[in-house]
Write a protein that binds this DNA or RNA. Sequence first.
DNA 1: TATTAATTGCAAACAATTCTTATTTAGGAA
DNA 2: TTCCTAAATAAGAATTGTTTGCAATTAATA
Lengths: 125, 125
Amino acid sequence: MKNTIQKTAIMNALMALDHPTADEVYECVHSEFPSISKATVYRILKRISEEGEILHLQIPGGADRFDTTLCVHHHLKCNKCGKVCDVSVPELDGIETRIKEESGFAIGGYRLVFSGLCSDCIFKK
Amino acid sequence: MKNTIQKTAIMNALMALDHPTADEVYECVHSEFPSISKATVYRILKRISEEGEILHLQIPGGADRFDTTLCVHHHLKCNKCGKVCDVSVPELDGIETRIKEESGFAIGGYRLVFSGLCSDCIFKK
DNA sequence: TATTAATTGCAAACAATTCTTATTTAGGAA
DNA sequence: TTCCTAAATAAGAATTGTTTGCAATTAATA
């Protein structure tokens, strides 16, 4: 893969942001580098997530988000402010084996998203 | 809620189909009842899922799907043919409590989607 | 049966993402 | 260093999935 200015700017934005959407990455890069195109942001995010450099998260009811934490973990989503946090769920360790035996599916991975209200939003009206 | 012909037709389609997308429901109803509009399908599906009559599933990388099985369960998605199956994961029973204590989030629910290849697709090229 | 609020169909708006095409660029070869 | 070419880009049109505004229609009830 070519090492373009655009890719570098996107990697920097990913470091600076927490679970950003593609559009948030675009806004961040665009403020420094106004000529970048949205299609480029989507293309690069897609490519580097396919190559395993970042995780591509599909969050119910909203745009996809990207995550630079690569170890196995899952997510908490606040339904009010939209914030996404990491959470680890060791209860699921090794579950692929059981699911594969029961269902015949060859499990490539799984995603678990909890939704609710974060501690900041619980008391807000 | 009024009991319209459109709603009845959609409920029947939901019974006949397995984890359909809104568009699949529309196609099914439309073949019997050509005057129905897509907006009506989306509106009715949204309303009956909000009322708890069906589940509204947000499956990564594709259109939302609807599920008439109401007890707690999760999903397996085949990355090749797109099929979605139910699976139960008792390992997670009661996990909301632990997550709430650790994170402060008031958990309203959670969704777990396994992705991989179904037994039919494993051997296909 | 008349009333009325809920529901519908349609078209247009919408958001997120992908595609198309002409142009530019990174990185290796000469 | 300069040239070459495949890879990557910008811009915006196109797609996909879904929602909305509105005038017309209809189900439920009085």
